[in-house]
């Protein structure tokens, strides 16, 4: 365990935890956009900036992204110093210029006293904050169907050649993880479409619920060495089956 202070309050967290983890553990709120508990920290959105210092630094302090900075013994963290707040406001001001119509960005900006961007608002408003969660979740699944394309002002998330992505399995993880819900998709009992690609749904042979795409089943089967039919049964029916198997075991009886 390591012991540090955050805004004067003592936090004890396991070694390897980040400053953000420690802050959350004691209920100190630090805004984030690109952080997700299921993914490696990325440090891209710069909203979680905090000031850190230590006694032996003799008054020196530095601004770090709390989502990546490891908690250490004796670390003193300040989450709302003047320069942290000022820097965070610049980030939010810029985000609001990029995404003037996005409720999440408007809310975060409002919480920091910004009602309107001081920059020229984006003439082509977008809801994408380029937090990279969608591309990172796709990478972490092992699919990597989408990535960021271009750079600078023209940077966007897109499939290769802006065409329906051949590698996409239609799992919708990118759309689910998107903090601004800006990845459009359609899904029904018969078909699903995302990124311009259409998928056939697989129905659970037991309850008939369409819960997975054919491509998802094939991908998971290939990755795990489990037969594709295993993934055709939905999770609820798998649990029922498992329970039945257990109750029929002679040892249980």
């Amino acid at each position: 365990m390591v012991t540090l202070t955050i805004d004067g309050r003592v936090a004890k967290v396991p070694a390897g935890a980040t400053v953000l983890d420690a802050a959350r553990a004691i209920g100190v709120r630090i805004p984030t956009l690109c952080q997700h508990e299921a993914l490696e920290p990325w440090g891209g959105c710069r909203l979680c900036l905090v000031d850190v210092t230590k006694k032996e630094w003799r008054g020196w302090q530095k601004m770090v992204v709390s989502c990546m900075f490891p908690a250490e013994d004796g670390l003193a963290v300040a989450t709302a110093t003047e320069r942290v707040v000022a820097t965070r406001k610049v980030v939010l001001d810029l985000l609001l210029a990029r995404c003037p119509d996005t409720p999440l960005v408007q809310r975060l900006a409002h919480e920091h006293g910004i009602e309107r961007t001081s920059y020229q608002p984006n003439p082509e408003p977008t809801d994408c904050v380029l937090c990279g969660l969608c591309t990172r979740v796709c990478d972490s699944i092992g699919v990597s169907a989408i990535a960021t394309v271009d750079r600078g002002a023209g940077k966007e998330v897109a499939p290769p050649f802006h065409q329906p992505p051949p590698d996409c399995i239609g799992c919708l993880a990118c759309a689910e993880v998107c903090p601004t819900d800006c990845i459009p998709y359609q899904t029904s009992d018969s078909a699903r479409s995302i990124w311009g690609k259409t998928f056939t749904m697989v129905r659970c042979p037991h309850c008939g619920r369409a819960h997975i795409t054919r491509e998802q089943a094939a991908f998971y089967a290939g990755r795990g060495g489990v037969p594709e039919s295993y993934f055709e049964t939905c999770d609820a029916c798998k649990r029922t089956q498992m329970a039945k198997t257990f109750t029929s075991l002679s040892a249980v009886r």
């Binding site: 591309t135 796709c138 699919v143 990597s144 169907a145 989408i146 990535a147 960021t148 394309v149 271009d150 750079r151 499939p159 290769p160 050649f161 992505p165 051949p166 590698d167």
Partner: peptide, 12 residues
């Protein structure tokens, strides 16, 4: 390498 990565680098 995933095609999306190749396209990402090629456009960057």
């Amino acid at each position: 390498v995933p095609l999306a990565k190749v396209f990402s680098v090629g456009t960057f």
